[in-house]
Every structure is written in C-alpha cells, then in structure tokens.
Design a protein around this nucleic acid. Sequence first.
DNA 1: AGTCAATTTGCACATTTATACACGATTTGA
DNA 2: TCAAATCGTGTATAAATGTGCAAATTGACT
Lengths: 263, 263
Amino acid sequence: MIMSNSLPLSRRDVIEARLAEGRQIIAASLAVEFNVSEDAVRRDLRALAAEGKCRRVYGGALPLLTSSRPISDRIGQASDRKRVLAQAAVAMIEPGEFLFLDSGSTNLAMVDLLPKDLGATIATNSIDIASAVMKRGDIPLVLIGGAVDPVVGGSVDASAVAAIEAMNIDRCFLGVCAVSARNGISVYEHADAIFKRTLLKRSAARIALITSEKFHERAPHRIGGAGDIDWLVVEDDLPADDEKAAVEAGFSLVKASNVTSSS
Amino acid sequence: MIMSNSLPLSRRDVIEARLAEGRQIIAASLAVEFNVSEDAVRRDLRALAAEGKCRRVYGGALPLLTSSRPISDRIGQASDRKRVLAQAAVAMIEPGEFLFLDSGSTNLAMVDLLPKDLGATIATNSIDIASAVMKRGDIPLVLIGGAVDPVVGGSVDASAVAAIEAMNIDRCFLGVCAVSARNGISVYEHADAIFKRTLLKRSAARIALITSEKFHERAPHRIGGAGDIDWLVVEDDLPADDEKAAVEAGFSLVKASNVTSSS
DNA sequence: AGTCAATTTGCACATTTATACACGATTTGA
DNA sequence: TCAAATCGTGTATAAATGTGCAAATTGACT
C-alpha cells in the first residue's frame, strides 16, 4: 500500500522543476493535476516568486530566465507542440484504466502530464517512458521485456509480442512514424510493425498522437488503416487539405487545441 | 505481511537506504510499516536531516538532491568509490560473454566503464541500467520485463524470474543490500530476493560489488551464503576485521585497488 | 543476579503548518 | 463600459509537528 500518496511539499518541487525547464505554469491546470484548490497552487507560486524562481502573471507564472538558452529553446519549442498533443491525449484517459504507452517522444511527454490521483496502470516497451514513469514514482508500471531494438528504444521482438498477447489493454497510445490517406499508418522497422499490430489487437481503445509533419513522412511498414485506430490526436493548426484527406480516409480526428490561456 | 522483528536501529538504516535510492518518505506510512508511532519515525527523520541525509518536509522527508538530477547526483556522491569497484569488476569480464547486470548504482557505474570493443551482450532488469546501455548504443541489450518494483527500480516479479530461467548467463553482477559473515548476502525486498536466487542459479560466474558500508547493513531477506557467490569485489580500504570475517565465512574477495591512473 | 545509566518509545498537550472556503478587490478581454 | 475570471485576505478546520514526561528496553558494571 505504498501507492501514490505524494508529499504535499513535493508539489512545490515539481512546479519548480517545470519552471526550471522553461515551462509556463497555469494555476487552474495545476490545481486539477495535483487535486488541490487553486489557493494552494497560488500559495506555491507566491512562495516561488518570493524566492525569485518565477514571475507571477495573471493565471499562473512564468519562468524568469528569458535570455540565452540555445539548445533548450529548440527542444522546448518541439516539446511545446508535443505537450499540447499529449495534454489532449491525457484528457481521454478514464480513471483506473490499464494503459499502454508505445515508444515515441510524444507519448513520453504524456507521462509528466498525467494527473497525480490517476488510478491507472501503465505498461510500456520503451525504456525512456519506463524511466520517466519510474521517476514519478506514483504510477504502477509494467515493463515489456525482450531484446532491445536500438532504433525503437525498447523491445519489439517475439518475446515482447508474446508478453502483450497476454494483456487486456484498456487504452493504448500508439507511436507512429508516418500517416497518409493512401497508406494508413506506418513505421520504419519491420519488427516494430509486428509488435504494434499485436498491440492494436489487444487494446480496447486505440489512439495515436500525430504531429503535423507525420502526414508527409513515408515509412516502409504498414501497420493498418483507419479501421485499426479509434482516434488520431492532431495539432490545432493541421493544414486543411491534410485534415480533409485524413477524414475522407475514415480517420476520426481529435484536435488538440492549446486552451492553455491566451498568449 | 512483513513483520520486522529486527533491531530498532535497523529501522533508521532502512529509511536512510530508501532515501539514498531517491525515494520520498511518508511519516505516517513508515509508522504503519514498522509498527511504531509516528513520533519515532519523526525522530529518525530529524536525526537524518541533522546528518544532512535528507530534507524534512510537512508529512515526511525528501532526499536531498532528487528534484533535479536523481540519478546523476547519487552517482556523483560516491562516484569515486563506486567507480573503483566498477572498474575492477569490468576487468573480470571476458570478451563475447553474455552478462547480466542486476539493479544497483554500483552496477550502473559499470556501464560507462565497459570498453568500446567489448563483444558482450548485456541483460538487465533495471530500467536505469537499460537506459544507460541504450544511451551508449554500442552494446546489444536484453531487457527483462514484468511489473516494476519501485524500490528496486526494475522487474523482479514472477514473469521476470521466468524470463531469466530461460537464460544461460555467463557472468552476472549481483546487487546486494547487506553482507555479513553470519547472514550471508541479503536484500530488503522479498520478491527481489527470489529473483536474485534464480539469477544466481542461471549464472556460470557470480560476482557482487560491495561497498564497505554494506558489511554493516542489515536486510531481512537472505539470498545465499559464500557458496552462492564466486567473487566479492570489495574496496581497498575495507577494515581488517570485516575482511577477516568475510574470508572466514568462505567468501572469495577481490580488492579493487584505485590505481586507475589516467583521467 | 542486581543495579544504574543511557537510549528508545509512546502519550498528552500546545503550537505550527497546509488547506479549503468565502468575500471583496483587481485584472482581463470584448 | 461590463462581465467573467483571477487574485488577495481573512477565517475555520484538519493534519502534522515539537516538547515534556513517564514507562520500557538495552547494555555495562559490580
């Protein structure tokens, strides 16, 4: 029973860590995520601002450092778009579900956005995702073993397929390399494709997070078509022709609007 | 039900060990787990905080350097001593072997010290070690899956045991929590002990890296005695009485002299 | 065995801390 | 300008904490 009861003050550390990454803080979102009132979040922000760790703004707080961060900026930019997708995906999760997070940087971004009181269990074959989930420490984790594919960053061999064959997954988040109306969803690695097909077969709800450039990628191994995926979570500013083609191919789209306040 | 009838002193050691692993301590949970009042736990936390081992927070305590860099900071603390042990352990590896690296920060230190042209394959159940091996990118990796034990940082459940039952390991590096002449080698977690016993059974050569303080730790679950381990890699400055007791208990010691040179 | 000192523990009490709620003031956006 | 959202302050409540003290345990010495 050592589950998920996190220390109250660790919340402030989490906020501080996010600020250190250059991320903006929205008081209302944090309140929901940590399952506390907005007053508590505001107190934390006030304390952090008093320590000079952030700047208070209407609706939340912003990190202080605005000057030179060459590398982190680029990562932060890419992360921002992926985080919007991830936030929309997190909102689709029901409490207590058995989730599978497939390998992929967008799925990795989901881990930090999962609410604290989520009673879900996460299974994954990605070492990076497993590492992130374990670092949180409040989510039960099931790791899929097997020979590790260095391109995928996780196990996609026969033993990994056999492991998920024995799972009843409530909701899986698929990582894909390319999407098109003609070829459906595809990936680069053959073994990865076999693994993902099995994953889709064993999952009740199947979701894929798609950054806009994925619609113009090409990959050799087809996983399936529109009938094999329940939802594609796409960016808000997806070009109209891409969207039209996807819808006509039978895909159900969920637009991830960055409702994160104005700005 | 783990009823620890162990010595009162051991409780504080267990708490310290958990903090060293980066885990957060919740006073109320600890009180239930050790079957003592919260006052006793708070007294321990106060003492540990006074020693600089942790940071007290409302509701329990947090490890000191955990928010920003949980892994690298821990390694940075005792990196010198552990790197010496790890270097000695790496020297025992033969080319082309199938290795198993058990969970543990000392074994983790081995990953970065492995030579480039090593034709070995590494298997592990530790997420941190898998992450480090994958980051290198030049070593074939086999990951042991299963439900992840948050204390161990990897899988030690029945499926993990079943996975290594099918392996013929040339050389395994065991992670242990405590060593003594009377009780042999021991760990904190029951499932971890079962896993390690199977690991020893499936391994041709069995090695454990032991920092000196492990000789004065206590842990509830015994893995085995001197006959179950081929080599204990110990520090150069191991106290003479500890060394004498270990040798008389039948252990074969390898002293890791810090003549690492270079760098 | 007996005794004494030191440590550890549990309990009672006052204090501090964190939190949620209520109300008025302030800011934001249309 | 107005309405909605957000912020700040005050207050009540629950939880955690620190302190003092007595009982129980341990270890050493006679």
